[in-house]
Design a protein around this nucleic acid. Structure first.
Lengths: 213, 213
DNA sequence: TAGATTGTTAATCGATTAACAATC
DNA sequence: TAGATTGTTAATCGATTAACAATC
């Protein structure tokens, strides 16, 4: 189906639907309703129905959506079926963990190689190469890489970021706990651990107060 | 100051302010205005001002906020100054990366130990112990642990989650790419890589289309 | 005093939810 | 047909932004 303008909030919920749909057993019913999905994920059914309507038009009253079609349409919408090449900068523990994560295949992400100021090894366990920073620009240009993952310490994140932009990178997944200044046309997506921790921490504080009071 | 009711959206922005304030050099001005903060982080100044007003009342017209007080108040508000003990389940690559991350100290998070169905080692490089799953319950009870980090594969995440709840855990930081079903009183915070990737992927798709078209 | 900045009150915007009509 | 479910239109809610008064 043709893509409608979609809001960020909807976009962020789609991967959750997709993961659930994919987790269903082969022999499950070939149809699934928005209601069923909503119940399974503990969400409002109207919200789910509206979200699905944005990306798939195979819904039939009384029946629901064909499961396979839904998976296909969400995947396609999210761009999971044409892989995106990315480079990773900062081959520390987190960087290596991300490089070794097999699941990114499912999301259409392919980490080509890593770069590090002082590479401790030539390649990771998974056989991905780790290059010194000097090679960054030529590699990105040669492979026409548009996405980068930043897993360096906060102090050097901005300079790495600047350099990546000079290499033609247009989307940055930032794991460094710091704000990155970029030109308007470049997208930075912060994987913000501090944010998640804040939410958890708040919850526990309230719980503890509750118990004491 | 006394805590007002705070919305989740505000809560999620606070760690960003705090990180920036802490990154300022010692010899920077002891005062900072909401305007200055907003500019530095590329945000709306009214939003920042309102956010700060929620957690700190040391703001003075024309001057701004005392930097140290602001840091103190945000830290306290987020509960970063009284540490929370946590256990981690799933000592794979990601689990080990998180266990080795020194930065959690700053957020008041202390990972006591890890648990794994088949521990590959007795302790991690950082000297944190890795126990077999059998020890989970007694450990949590003995140490009165309320927070857990899940870094196991999606397939076993729900069963691990159920077990953690039986151990008295009340807040779960979930890195497994799957929905967790929990009782109402338990908080699950999903660290959703798929969501971030969806946003990045969307952006790149639009960029590419733009270039072609 | 003048001007920058705070804090507050009102207006706008967007997203969620509710109500309802259409349909298989 | 009856009923579950879709899709749409309207109402509500919350968060952001704008306007303005207070203050150092």
């Amino acid at each position: 189906m043709e893509h409608k303008e979609i809001s960020k909030s909807v976009l962020k919920r789609l991967p959750g639907y997709l993961a659930y749909l994919k987790s269903l057993p082969e022999d499950a019913s070939p149809y699934i309703s928005a209601t069923a999905l909503a119940n399974a994920l503990g969400m409002g059914e109207v919200q789910v129905r509206k979200d699905l309507a944005m990306v798939c038009d195979g819904g039939r009253p009384k029946v629901g959506y064909p499961r396979e079609l839904l998976i296909e349409d969400i995947s396609q919408f999210l761009g999971y079926d044409n892989t995106t090449d990315a480079v990773l900068v900062g081959a520390g523990k987190l960087g290596q963990a991300l490089m070794g994560y097999k699941g990114f295949d499912d999301y259409g992400l392919n980490i080509l190689a890593a770069f590090d100021a002082a590479p401790a090894m030539e390649q990771t366990e998974e056989g991905k190469r780790v290059y010194p920073m000097e090679k960054l620009e030529s590699f990105c240009r040669k492979n026409n890489v548009l996405m980068a993952i930043i897993t360096v310490p906060a102090e050097v994140a901005q300079s790495v970021c600047d350099r990546l932009i000079q290499c033609g990178i247009e989307a940055i997944w930032n794991f460094a706990p710091t704000h990155l200044d970029v030109p308007e046309k470049i997208l930075v997506q912060n994987e913000n651990m501090a944010t998640s921790l804040a939410v958890l921490s708040m919850h526990l504080q309230a719980k503890i107060k509750e118990k004491k009071g």
